[in-house]
């Protein structure tokens, strides 16, 4: 992974925030535009991300559903790889849940802690901080990096879609919750966030493969509710939700679905949209041009 750019070496090196970065399989292999725009965003707001070395799949729903041992060991190994003293930033809400809930389980279960230490040959890091990508927005002042932030997404009517995973399962009931952060941020950038009541509705995850009709129905419902509420595009927090909303939508003229990281990077003046947007099934370019937010 690309290391921090050297231009900041003298000026802000000491303040530069550093995270271990866990991309997860969805971002690494299918949501490339999500990864690219996320890296761009972090670079622009002076955050250094170091990809977790040799990370593995978190196990996702599949290990959780049919293989308890793998569901335990897969996240455990990832936890054991994090260098001490550096918080772990996870971009995928589903990976976040798997890894964070396993971390908290080990923390409160002595036998499990012993098992972890024996299996991975390392002491368990009691102080490891595991955060979602959204936490970064809490840690910086976006306005410090943007001139006239209110013009950046001016008048864009966006329906923020969090998906179900960020709503936190019972295991993580007392952990930080990120609802509202997309609305707040969009407002600060001049956009008009649309609330539509389906922002945390599940996208259907793997039923998109095994029961496509069921997934199609929920996806169409989510997108049409956003459209009825007046949205002209949607923004997602999760790469897998994004994929499902794109591939399972069978509405006639659906609105484009963007990754939150794409809108953030755009607002920060990134010019790499040409690498991201051709990967979208519903092209967001005409809309963004019409609103005068991009030139080409």
């Amino acid at each position: 992974m690309k290391k921090s750019s050297e231009k900041n070496e003298n000026s802000q090196q000491s303040e530069r925030l550093k995270f271990s970065f866990f991309p997860g399989c969805s971002l690494k292999a299918s949501g490339h535009e999500n990864t690219m725009s996320l890296l761009k965003f972090c670079d622009r707001v002076n955050i250094e991300l170091v990809e977790l070395e040799d990370w593995n799949c978190c196990g996702s729903s599949s290990a959780h559903s049919i293989d308890h041992d793998a569901a335990k060991n897969l996240p455990m190994r990832n936890i054991s790889l994090v260098p001490k003293g550096i918080p772990l930033m996870i971009a995928c809400p589903s990976c976040l849940i798997r890894i964070k809930s396993m971390y908290l389980k080990i923390k409160r279960d002595k036998a499990l802690k012993q098992e972890y230490e024996e299996l991975w040959g390392k002491p368990f890091d009691e102080d490891l901080e595991i955060v979602h990508f959204f936490e970064i927005i809490n840690k910086i002042r976006l306005e410090d990096y943007i001139d006239q932030p209110k013009d950046k997404l001016k008048n864009l009517k966006v329906a923020p879609y969090y998906g179900c995973m960020l709503s936190m399962p019972p295991d993580l009931r007392f952990e930080k919750n990120y609802y509202g952060i997309m609305e707040q941020t969009l407002k600060r950038l001049g956009a008009d966030p649309i609330s539509f009541g389906y922002g945390s509705r599940c996208c259907g995850t793997y039923l998109s493969v095994a029961k496509p009709q069921v997934a199609q129905k929920v996806v169409n419902e989510i997108i049409s509710k956003a459209m009825e509420a007046g949205a002209e595009c949607m923004v997602t927090a999760c790469s897998m939700c994004h994929l499902n909303l794109e591939i399972r939508c069978s509405l006639e003229n659906p609105i484009p679905v963007l990754h939150f990281s794409e809108l953030l990077s755009m607002a920060l003046g990134a010019q790499d949209q040409k690498k991201w947007f051709p990967r979208h099934i519903v092209d967001p370019v005409p809309l963004l041009k019409k609103r005068g937010l991009i030139s080409s």
Partner: peptide, 10 residues
């Protein structure tokens, strides 16, 4: 069929 979206539990 339950994907564990936690709509029910929440």
């Amino acid at each position: 069929v339950c994907v564990g979206c936690n709509t029910c539990s929440s």
